[in-house]
């Protein structure tokens, strides 16, 4: 496994003359706010389509959709952060991500960019925020025009099947 990771480096990290490692992040928008995810965790981006709702789930769980034969849950990122449910239209997108061994969809407003950042650019989240449960954000990055909050998917959407069994 470790060998594999090393081989992959050139594609994910853009080396520069200074030999600083750069990581690529996919950024997307929810309510004008910018969030980012490591591109390695993003499997694909899909246009929103109606999901099949599940009984008795958390409010932010929109239901499940068929991703070429596998059943994938879709979570509403806006609702996850305490906002109202997204009134999803054709312009909304579902970012399909890998969280551990599971494939999960995250409903966002739009995908904006792919940015390359070095580990040094990532700033820690200030502690003691009144409202925020800080751990859902892995770090902050200031890009040219906005602040990007890097998501910590394991904390946002924990694998509940482990807890239930």
């Amino acid at each position: 496994m470790t060998e594999m990771a090393e081989i992959e480096i050139p594609t994910d990290k853009v080396a520069t003359s200074k030999n600083i490692e750069y990581f690529q992040y996919v950024t997307f928008l929810v309510d004008e706010r910018t969030f980012g995810l490591d591109i390695k965790n993003v499997r694909e981006i899909k246009q929103w389509s109606a999901t099949t709702s599940l009984p008795n789930q958390a409010k932010f769980t929109r239901g499940v959709l068929n991703l070429r034969g596998t059943i994938v849950p879709v979570h509403d990122l806006r609702a996850r952060f305490g906002g109202p449910l997204t009134e999803a239209t054709d312009t909304h997108v579902v970012v399909i991500v890998w969280i551990g061994t599971k494939t999960v969809g995250v409903l966002v407003d739009a995908v904006s960019d792919i940015i390359s950042i070095s580990a040094e650019d990532i700033r820690p989240v200030p502690q003691g925020q009144p409202n925020g449960d800080g751990s859902t954000i892995a770090g902050l990055v200031c890009s040219e025009d906005a602040m990007v909050a890097l998501l910590n998917l394991e904390v946002l959407f924990p694998d509940e099947s482990v807890l239930l069994e």
């Binding site: 994938v72 599971k102 999960v104 694998d159």
Partner: peptide, 8 residues
């Protein structure tokens, strides 16, 4: 459903 989510 459990493969990617959990038992409902």
């Amino acid at each position: 459903l459990e493969a990617n989510f959990k038992k409902v």
